[in-house]
């Protein structure tokens, strides 16, 4: 009997890895993020305006056969793509995860969405404005991160000036912070999650993502 159990354990050990594999995907799409925090006249944050530039390979995929006669696609030709993107992004919370004073900030439906194509670099950029469900005060620090919990898409703030403020009182600032290195306990938790399969928890991927902070005096 003990031998049979051993045999089963042996077999399971070899069959389990491919079953677990779905957790080990890697990104297929790279997006470099530029974002603006839009502030109203009353100094409240009203929206985040996104500019997401896709990598050259994915750009070739989304723009395939859209331009006429070998010309690069125009914004009109790309509008249906932008529409499809923002529609399907809803279920993924626009990959935008915002917090103020430890609380999650909710967003409304996106507006002013479009897609442009840079023929020189052969890359497509998706633009959209994501309004906050309720404008946020700036007295408390407001932050947001852009990331895909499933890691199919790798988001990164663009190098150089990637975030900026639009409007708002003087003295406000916005900056991007890199994630702090994981301490031993967190590393253990992540390793455990890898062996147990499935995600270490949404807040975890968030902790590994770059974060933009808005602060006003």
């Amino acid at each position: 009997m003990r031998k049979s159990l051993l045999a089963l354990a042996l077999a399971a050990a070899f069959v389990a890895p491919p079953m677990v594999a779905p957790a080990l995907a890697h990104p297929h799409v790279w997006v470099s993020v530029k974002a603006e925090a839009v502030l109203g006249e009353d100094g409240k944050i009203t929206a985040i305006r996104h500019h997401w530039t896709f990598d050259d390979m994915y750009s070739a995929f989304v723009t395939a056969n859209l331009g006429k006669d070998g010309q690069p696609p125009t914004s009109e030709e790309l509008q249906p793509v932008a529409q499809t993107n923002v529609d399907s992004l809803k279920e993924f919370e626009y990959f935008t995860f915002s917090k103020q004073a430890g609380k999650k900030v909710a967003f409304g439906d996106p507006r002013d969405f479009s897609m442009t194509y840079n023929a020189k670099d052969q890359v497509a950029t998706l633009h959209f404005t994501l309004p906050l469900a309720r404008p946020a005060e700036t007295k408390k620090v407001f932050s947001f991160a852009v990331y895909d919990p499933s890691y199919f898409v790798a988001f990164e703030f663009e190098k150089g000036p990637s975030v900026s403020l639009e409007g708002g009182p003087k003295g406000c600032s916005i900056s991007v912070t890199k994630p702090h290195a994981l301490d031993e306990k967190e590393q253990q938790k992540l390793n455990q999650a890898m062996t147990d399969n499935f995600s270490p928890g949404e807040d975890f991927a968030l902790r590994l993502a770059d974060r933009a902070f808005v602060a006003c005096p």
């Binding site: 957790a23 080990l24 399907s88 992004l89 895909d148 499933s150 199919f152 898409v153 890898m194």
Partner: peptide, 28 residues
């Protein structure tokens, strides 16, 4: 649900460390 930026195929994900992280880094 399929990722908004999918190419028609369902693929999930998950970042990794250790050996898995290394494999992922190679693929990237």
């Amino acid at each position: 649900a399929k990722n908004p930026f999918n190419v028609g195929i369902t693929e999930g994900g998950g970042a990794g460390t250790g050996v898995v992280g290394w494999i992922i880094a190679q693929q990237i």
